[in-house]
């Protein structure tokens, strides 16, 4: 019916090739400021570390628990603060500013689980939260265990204490 109006017979898109396109498109790419981001992440990650150490010191100072127990309590406190930040909706804004410095420490782990849980709460406790809470954190747990096993084996084989 539209035969007479179909004027474009050549459907191969002229002579655009990947190489030609890439040559022009490359000029309009933006470099990610990797060094700058790395420095920001190093400093912000360091601040989290400092905060953790500070909490441990305070706990040891004011309560009479062992350093080991204090570090466990510190982790719980940091996780709580990060998760609360996610729930109140400002942690993602901090991540945009402070880059991976907030994602790599335990704060990022907590954040990845809380954000996934919030996202899928409407799909219910089983198919939503339960099935998706480890969406991002699952990889961390799996490869964390694998890495721990590998390094544990290396240490054992080198004659270290278990």
């Amino acid at each position: 019916m539209y035969e007479k109006e179909i004027k474009g017979k050549n459907n191969t898109g002229d002579n655009m090739t990947k190489e030609k396109y890439e040559k022009v498109a490359k000029k309009h790419e933006v470099k990610i400021p990797k060094t700058k981001n790395a420095i920001i992440a190093f400093l912000s990650g360091g601040v989290i570390g400092l905060l953790g150490e500070g909490i441990i010191e305070l706990l040891c100072l004011f309560t009479h628990i062992s350093r080991n127990s204090a570090s466990s309590i510190m982790i719980v406190i940091i996780i709580f603060i990060a998760s609360l930040g996610t729930a109140l909706g400002f942690f993602d804004k901090l991540v945009t500013k402070f880059k991976c410095g907030l994602l790599i420490p335990i704060t990022g782990f907590a954040h990845s689980m809380t954000s996934a849980a919030i996202d899928y709460k409407n799909e219910g406790p089983i198919y939503g939260i339960g099935a998706n809470i480890f969406k991002l954190a699952g990889s961390v747990i799996l490869y964390g265990i694998v890495a721990a096993w590998i390094f544990g084996m290396i240490r054992y084989l080198l004659g270290g204490n278990i």
Partner: peptide, 17 residues
């Protein structure tokens, strides 16, 4: 965002492009 990328509250850093 939820469907194509990370959870919405995650806010992973993105490049300017």
């Amino acid at each position: 965002e939820k469907q194509f990328r990370n959870p919405t509250e995650y806010g992973a850093p993105k490049p300017d492009t």
